[in-house]
Design a protein around this nucleic acid. Structure first.
Length: 196
DNA sequence: TAAACGATGCCCT
DNA sequence: GGGCATCGTTTAC
């Protein structure tokens, strides 16, 4: 999608990314879960200012911000908001569409719901590494290695909840997911579960 | 130079 | 649903 899609408030972009399709190489998947991060809140990497590894986060909307988590995993984010503002939407889970056998090979697992049901899982399944940090998602370059395509059909059902795996600003309801998918990293936010 | 800390995943109940 | 392995980056001496 074009730069204008990403040049908006990160909450809008994160929500609108649910249902869109990520394509890289021979693999593709439909986004079923995202989270928003913004420099105004302490869970965001941009909160404490700029460092070399976080530089892209402050860059142009439509760039891929890829960083290493827990020393091991690569996390894929879409940089949002105007140039200079540190904000990004984390892609947390995909429903595999294309290249499932390649994903199985990379992940060492068979079941479709185990291939991309987490932010570290999906980058491993699609072969997305730190070398793609700063690459373009807006389709402006033909050699752009990662492409995000608009969703087809009606807007998916979207539930909102608190973000996962953080210790700061835990109360912000900045997680968006499609509860009808079995590929979300957790079925749906606990507060959305029906009692009994 | 050393130590603490994760925007996690996996395996086990 | 809970505990722990894992290791690059950051931050503090």
């Amino acid at each position: 999608m074009k730069r204008e899609f990403y040049d908006r408030p990160v909450l809008e972009v994160a929500r609108d990314l649910v249902g869109c399709v990520v394509r890289h190489g021979d693999t593709a998947g439909r986004i079923v879960e995202t989270e928003a991060y913004h420099q105004s809140e302490p869970a965001c990497h941009a909160y404490n200012g700029l460092t070399p590894t976080r530089k892209v986060l402050f860059g142009s909307p439509g760039l891929a911000y890829v960083y290493r988590s827990y020393g091991i995993h690569a996390m894929l984010n879409a940089v949002t908001e105007p140039d200079g503002v540190g904000a990004a939407a984390l892609i947390r889970a995909l429903e595999p569409l294309d290249g499932l056998d390649l994903m199985r090979e990379r992940r060492g697992l068979e079941r479709p719901q185990d291939l991309c049901s987490g932010p570290g899982k999906l980058t491993q399944a699609m072969g997305i590494g730190l070398d793609l940090d700063g690459s373009s998602l807006d389709g402006s370059s033909l050699d752009g290695p990662i492409e995000i395509l608009p969703r087809e059909g009606p807007e998916p059902e979207i539930v909102v909840g608190e973000r996962i795996g953080i210790t700061l600003a835990v109360d912000l309801p900045w997680r968006f997911c499609d509860p009808s998918s079995r590929c979300v990293s957790r079925p749906w936010p606990p507060e959305m579960r029906k009692p009994g």
